[in-house]
């Protein structure tokens, strides 16, 4: 590793690091485009959402809440809730970006995803981050998402009666899988139980989307109130 690495080799390194994930995102992008089309978004709107929001998990959440007429505030609030982890992720990036010019730093923070965040922090364990590496990491990976979502939107809109293929259940299946990926042991289990119970009661007795907010708050409270003080301090350091 030279002390002043040139742009192209660094770009190639970043590109190769993210390449398998770039391919892995494609089926999810096709699925998202399909679901968005079923909810009445045009392909162009789907591409606009993917390019501007650029947060897969939160977009699946927002499309689940999406209805006619559009519950605008509920969709935006659900997006904010689902993306709140970026507050922590953006905070965790700060000490690792000092070697980058300000424009690259803000650009990366403004557009990072779970995948590019994790790979940038992994790279940082052995090397300083460079503009070339960050560009290679983010460039194609960013364009990949709206492109394949758009493809999914064009073809997914043509499917009749999606429930016949279980497409309406895909959301639930996907979210269960995402919960598995975020699993952190006991605190996750308590958060899930508290959230499920609260959301079930609120969904049954209160109309609208309040069950999402109620479940989220109950789950967070359960995790916070039951954590041991020493364990929580360690988690905060990590």
């Amino acid at each position: 590793m030279s002390s002043n690495p040139s742009f192209l080799p660094e770009f190639r390194r970043g590109f190769l690091d993210i390449a398998p994930l770039t391919l892995g995102v494609v089926p999810f992008a096709l699925l998202f485009g399909t679901l968005a089309a079923q909810k009445g978004l045009s392909p162009l709107e789907t591409v606009l959402m993917c390019a501007s929001v650029y947060a897969g998990g939160a977009q699946f959440v927002s499309i689940e809440v999406w209805a006619h007429p559009v519950p605008v505030l509920a969709v935006i609030a659900a997006t904010a809730l689902a993306n709140s982890r970026y507050l922590l992720m953006g905070a965790a990036l700060r000490p690792h970006l000092r070697t980058l010019p300000l424009v690259v730093r803000l650009g990366f923070v403004g557009i990072h995803s779970d995948e590019t965040w994790a790979l940038a922090l992994r790279r940082r364990k052995t090397h300083d981050l460079t503009p070339g590496y960050v560009a290679g990491l983010v460039g194609f990976f960013y364009l990949n998402w709206p492109f394949w979502c758009g493809v999914g939107a064009v073809f997914g809109g043509a499917i009749d009666d999606p429930a016949r293929f279980g497409a309406d259940f895909m959301f639930a299946a996907l979210f269960i899988g995402l919960i598995r990926g975020l699993w952190q042991g006991r605190s996750s289990l308590l958060a899930i139980c508290a959230s499920a119970l609260t959301a079930w009661v609120v969904h049954r007795y209160v109309s609208g989307h309040w069950y999402i907010f109620a479940g989220a708050v109950a789950g967070m409270a359960a995790a916070a109130l039951t954590c041991r003080a020493d364990a929580s301090a360690q988690e905060a350091e990590a």
Binding site: A172, A199, S232
Partner: peptide, 28 residues
């Protein structure tokens, strides 16, 4: 800097939101 229980609550948020979202489909 978020510490202690506030950090744990923030970390639990994505899981709590996703769980609440699937409740109508999965349980009702």
């Amino acid at each position: 800097t978020l510490r202690g229980r506030a950090a744990v609550a923030m970390e639990a948020m994505p899981v709590a939101v996703l769980t609440a979202l699937i409740v109508p489909t999965a349980l009702a």
